[in-house]
Simulated assay, not measured.
Amino acid sequence: MPSDPVSTPVPGIEISLDTQTLTLFPDGASTPLSYPVSTALNGPGERQSSGCTPRGRHYVRAMVGGGVPLNSVFVARRPTGEVYSDALSRKFPERDWILSRILWLCGLESGKNRGPGVDSFRRFIYIHGTPDTEPMGVPRSHGCIRMRNKDVVDLYGRVSPGMPVTIR
């Protein structure tokens, strides 16, 4: 009797809220890559305006920022032409900095992370860069998944729209 085939991981991204890590499974043959992240200070949750990181199955709906310089500043998914610096941070202390690259997530589970009141896409949930002064490995975001700038640029170059993302 033949043995069961070994299952190969499906390409995709897994984000652990417990360990504050993002793991990329590039394809069935490559070794997974792990990056430290920072998810929501308010913890997990799917409700609109909660400031929480939504759980469940998602996919990368859009990718923004390919080719812009490291530490480029984005507002409403558009590069402002600014490059983050300490001086810029002092000038705009109220900004929630979105830097370098954006992977915009869309939920796949109706009533959980897709649809009225819980829609991850309409909540503008991203994987994005943040100032290097922000800690990784601890929840501090407003709902998004923050990464070091060099890490989000690396991740951006390894994924494509449609890639599955699971947040646990």
Rank of each mutant, 00 (worst) to 15 (best):
M1T: 04
P2D: 15
P2G: 13
P5Q: 03
V6C: 10
V6K: 07
T8Q: 14
T8E: 15
V10A: 09
P11M: 07
G12N: 10
G12Y: 15
G12S: 05
I13F: 09
E14I: 02
L17M: 10
L17I: 00
T19V: 00
Q20P: 11
T21M: 04
T21D: 06
L22W: 00
L22N: 01
T23C: 03
T23W: 11
L24M: 05
P26L: 01
A29C: 01
A29F: 09
S30R: 15
P32F: 04
S34G: 11
P36T: 10
P36W: 07
G51P: 03
G51T: 03
C52N: 07
T53G: 06
R55W: 02
R57Y: 08
R57F: 05
H58R: 08
V60K: 03
V60I: 04
R61F: 06
R61M: 05
M63T: 03
G66V: 00
G66A: 04
G66T: 03
G66I: 00
P69V: 00
N71H: 09
S72H: 08
V73N: 04
F74R: 04
A76D: 09
P79M: 01
P79N: 06
T80Y: 01
E82Q: 06
V83W: 01
V83S: 08
Y84T: 00
Y84A: 00
S85E: 15
S85M: 08
L88D: 13
S89L: 08
R90V: 05
K91I: 00
F92K: 02
E94A: 12
R95D: 12
W97L: 12
I98P: 00
L99K: 01
S100C: 07
I102N: 13
I102D: 15
L103M: 12
W104D: 14
L108R: 14
L108H: 00
L108M: 11
S110W: 06
K112D: 05
N113F: 04
N113D: 03
N113H: 10
V118R: 13
D119G: 07
F121R: 11
F121K: 02
F124M: 08
Y126E: 05
P131T: 03
P135H: 05
P135Q: 09
I145D: 02
R146L: 09
M147F: 10
M147K: 14
M147H: 12
R148L: 14
N149M: 02
K150V: 14
K150D: 15
K150T: 10
D151F: 05
D154K: 10
Y156L: 08
Y156C: 12
G157M: 15
G157T: 12
S160E: 11
P161W: 04
M163Y: 14
P164M: 13
P164Y: 10
V165K: 12
V165C: 06
I167Q: 11
